[in-house]
Design a protein around this nucleic acid. Structure first.
Lengths: 151, 151
DNA sequence: AACATTCCCGAGCAAAACTGTCAATTAAAG
DNA sequence: CTTTAATTGACAGTTTTGCTCGGGAATGTT
């Protein structure tokens, strides 16, 4: 019942984007260094985030990625959907495969509800929520006001 | 974010055990046939369920498995724990690995809470709950009162 | 125009996890 | 002592995951 690193990385990267001062583009290289995530792997994730209209890209020197919408309007479930991880706990919930043999399986309803709970929870949390938490945590900590990063 | 077939099968099998009339042992072979699950694979699952004291085994002819406790006292989270699927959505939640690099990661808290929601939900549902649903569904359907099974 | 920076795209690949199979053994009932 | 059924451990096929690699295209700088 683990989320893949895709989902984990994508959410962290999105927070990273939002914490950038002034809303200038952030390059994948920067995120890669800051979050210790493989550069080329991140490229793949951002390609998907872009296709889902969660980020916008800016090419050329000084370019990078920017959130496509206000952070408050980007919830975690959308990010996870974007990098193609399913939130359904069983394949029968998505009608990909028949549940069991013929009859609707006894447990079908449970997995359906579990999936709903998971999605509801993730949909209730936005990138802004996470960013706010991050900033609060930093207050009182050693904080480099230049980069907005822990030194 | 899928549950493994281990978890799915184990829950179905436990319901199967409970629906048996009179509480006589049910053989793995029977469950295998009824639920269309590989016999030898089921063996592995039941070995784990037994070690977790969720079922008791009865050897020899007429033997099989029985629930080790009343169905109302067996919740789904215990079953899934038993077959060794984690309910934590990220490895850092279980302290298996450090979250990110050094500092506690921004997203840590979210995955922690998500894990709690999932566990709470599954802990709130017992084998008895599922069995009751199954019986209600059968009522009005074609039902074989001998075996307690759909004909 | 040359160059550096950055996004963009597709193919490939090793390791791990998942989903089983197989063979041999032990225990109990009749 | 034969049959039924649990018990155990090793192993094998397939799929998914988590990347790497190699090249390209757009954009800004000098």
């Amino acid at each position: 019942m683990r989320l893949s690193t895709k989902a984990l990385y994508a959410v962290r990267a999105m927070v990273c984007l939002n914490l950038q001062k002034g809303g200038e583009p952030v390059s994948i290289r920067e995120i890669s260094a800051r979050e210790r995530i493989s550069l080329t792997y991140l490229e793949q994730l951002f390609a998907k985030l872009r296709r889902s209209d969660l980020v916008r890209s800016v090419r050329g020197p000084g370019g990078g990625y920017v959130l496509a919408r206000p952070a408050a309007e980007i919830a975690l479930d959308a990010i996870i959907d974007s990098v193609e991880e399913t939130l359904a706990p069983a394949s029968c919930v998505e009608q990909k495969e028949p549940c069991c043999h013929g009859e609707q399986c006894v447990t079908h309803q449970v997995w359906l509800e579990l999936g709903e709970r998971i999605r509801d929870f993730l949909a209730s949390i936005s990138i802004e929520d996470l960013s706010r938490d991050a900033l609060e945590r930093r207050r009182g900590d050693l904080l480099n006001p230049e980069t907005g990063e822990l030194s």
